[in-house]
Design a protein around this nucleic acid. Structure first.
Lengths: 172, 172
DNA sequence: CTCCTGAGTTCGGTGAATGAACCTACGGCA
DNA sequence: TGCCGTAGGTTCATTCACCGAACTCAGGAG
């Protein structure tokens, strides 16, 4: 944000959570991470976020244990950012907020459709009508009728095909 | 934040939602509204938020249709801010984020305990294990073992007793 | 008439976000 | 050996939102 950064006097777990994942850009970074974005450059291209802010947010998320930085290639050395268990646990909250946006702010119908792969049904209210709670890795995203397809960055293009959450996105 | 204010190029319902309810302070204002806070002065005392920011946020929420401003007294004229249906629909998302904070950031156990009044069971993962989805007006909040009770503003004091969500808080 | 309360608005100072330019490490290639 | 390209950052001046104290305003109450 500019969300200052903290909410000192609040004895409230929501305030604590927001200090960590409520800063400007952070929820979108996490959404991208669930989608399968892992590399600094891909976050950068897809979010149009200032480089310094992205670096600061990723560092804060790693420090807090929401994401982890891990080597995926040695020559040249390259790291990627992946969600930890604590980070993956954010999925229901993030997904429900996104669905609220779809319900109340999308004119053209849903921009993305979420399917529970084990049973094939579409998610409702953040869970599977048939199976109950879902794990993000069992969910597939697909563009819906409200999708715009105006962006041409590598991540947006890759997302025009159906894609399983948390699976690394193949970018050129 | 400072959360700037918008996320222009993002074709994503999460970005749209965040432009509305992701600004600094806004989630805490909404949490208070669910708790039953309705008056400008009560928000002010409970949140320690700058007056100008509170006024701007409430106005934005009213403009967006998330809250409504209604007269509750004519002499002198006084208005209160209450959640609309669109606003009340945010409860699952807000509650899940708060629960994530409880699970991962509360050292002393939960600060607040949520009970589904019709059946008496405690909420898990944002819904009732017995009944499924819950409406906020059917939920009771009570301080839990991790509650601090350090604040002495009227709202915090009123919340030391069990309280039904959305019910107006009685402040002196 | 004066004081008090609730609900804001105004305004100078501060700190975070922004974006362009720069830096660094490494590999490939001529 | 030198040069170029790429990925992943850091630096820095500017802009903008937040902050908080002071002020305003409307309407009772005494």
């Amino acid at each position: 944000m500019a969300l200052g950064t903290d909410y000192d006097g609040q004895d409230c777990s929501l305030a604590r959570a927001l200090e960590l994942v409520g800063e400007r850009w952070t929820p979108l970074i996490l959404r991208d991470a669930f989608i399968g974005v892992r590399r600094y450059g891909d976050f950068l291209d897809h979010l149009d976020i200032p480089r310094a802010v992205l670096a600061a947010r990723l560092q804060a998320l790693v420090d807090a244990g929401v994401m982890a930085r891990q080597r995926y290639q040695d020559a040249p050395p390259r790291d990627e950012y992946v969600l930890t268990a604590m980070g993956r646990d954010l999925w229901p909250a993030l997904h429900l907020l996104s669905q609220w946006g779809e319900r109340h702010l999308s004119e053209q119908g849903p921009r993305r459709v979420y399917t529970h792969l084990p049973c094939g049904s579409q998610l409702q209210n953040g869970s599977c009508p048939a199976c109950g709670a879902v794990r993000p890795e069992d969910v597939e995203v697909r563009p819906g009728p409200g999708a715009a397809q105006t962006r041409t960055d590598a991540v947006s293009v890759a997302l025009r095909e159906p894609h399983r959450l948390l699976e690394p996105l193949r970018t050129p």
